[in-house]
Simulated scan of single mutants.
Amino acid sequence: MAKDHQMSGQRFFIVTVLNAVITILEVVGGLLSGSLALLSDAFHNLGDTFSIVISYVAHRISQRQEDQRNTFGYGRAQILAAMLNAFLLIIVSVFLVIEAVKRLGHPETINGGLMLWVAVIGLLANLVSALLMHGGAKHNLNMKATYLHLLSDTLSSIGVIFGAFMIQWYNVTIFDPIITIVVALYITVESWPIVRHTITILMQGAPKMDYDAIKADLLTIEGVTNVHHIHVWMIDEHRIMFSAHINMQDMLLSEVEPIYRQIERLLATKYQICHVTLQAEDIRGRDEELIHNEDLEQQLKQRQHEE
């Protein structure tokens, strides 16, 4: 774990330095060549530099152990960073689309040769950065958001290179804003699912599961007579929490514990639930719904009182 953490830190540092250098190069190149696409790529890289720093800080915070202030740990720091980075991508993309649309009506003279060389250097640096972050992007939303930043810059650089060729050989300057718009729209489409997923986690949303099937599986365990009032939520993209009230046959506490272990094993192996909290009951709540609805419960109590 320590070795992986050290490697992640080294990768974050290398990628940060690369993006800072690319940003400076592309800003200078974009101003000198007059290319909006090159400047847009520079803005993306500037955003990437900040996002990588944010991601690394969140990565470090998430490594802290549980304590009295955060009994579930600090893993959600990476969820917050992923959401912030995805939002930044969308905001920058909207800004670039607005500027590109303005330039469609007022094309400007562009130095295609300078634009091409700067874009090629940017592409190589972005490829190296994306490859460095690719490994961690498969299992971590925070690193996935950072990787998406870098991948978008790689695609943007390819688009800028294509536009530079068209400008250099055919003097078709309209490709510059068109490429900017296409890349910005692609980035927005790719970023939105990350925003949606991180908001679901932060709102303690439930993962997509067949809760009736979970109840049916639990009822197959000897001693369990009913399951009700369950709560399922995500702490981060990997950890699922589960709590439930379990109606059981009247038995000794020492007989209940083996049943608890069976339930925990079942939920962990079949549904990848890592933390289970159970409340054993005899007849209390036997008529309650699987998903607790407080308003419905109040209505039922009111009806019983009126009767």
Rank of each mutant, 00 (worst) to 15 (best):
H5G: 09
F43R: 02
V224P: 03
F13L: 15
Y260K: 06
H59I: 10
C274W: 12
L32A: 14
A81K: 00
R76Y: 06
E26R: 07
V118Q: 02
Q65L: 13
Q63H: 05
R103I: 15
A81E: 04
D217L: 08
H5Q: 12
I24M: 10
D210V: 11
D210N: 15
N111F: 13
A100E: 00
L155P: 00
A130Q: 03
V57F: 03
D282S: 14
S35N: 07
E281D: 14
L32R: 09
W169V: 08
A244T: 05
N111S: 12
K138F: 15
I174M: 09
V160I: 14
G9T: 15
L124R: 05
L253Q: 09
S129Y: 06
T225Y: 06
Y56S: 01
H106Q: 14
G136T: 10
L290C: 07
V94P: 04
D41M: 07
S129D: 06
N140T: 07
A82W: 03
S93N: 05
I187A: 05
F95T: 15
H139V: 13
E294N: 10
I79C: 04
S55P: 03
D67M: 12
L36R: 00
P193S: 09
L88E: 05
I194E: 02
L132P: 00
K102I: 13
E255T: 13
Q304A: 14
N142T: 02
G223V: 11
T23A: 06
A268W: 03
C274P: 03
L155M: 14
C274Y: 11
I187N: 03
I214S: 03
I161F: 05
V17W: 01
Q10A: 15
M209P: 00
V276R: 03
E222Y: 13
A100L: 09
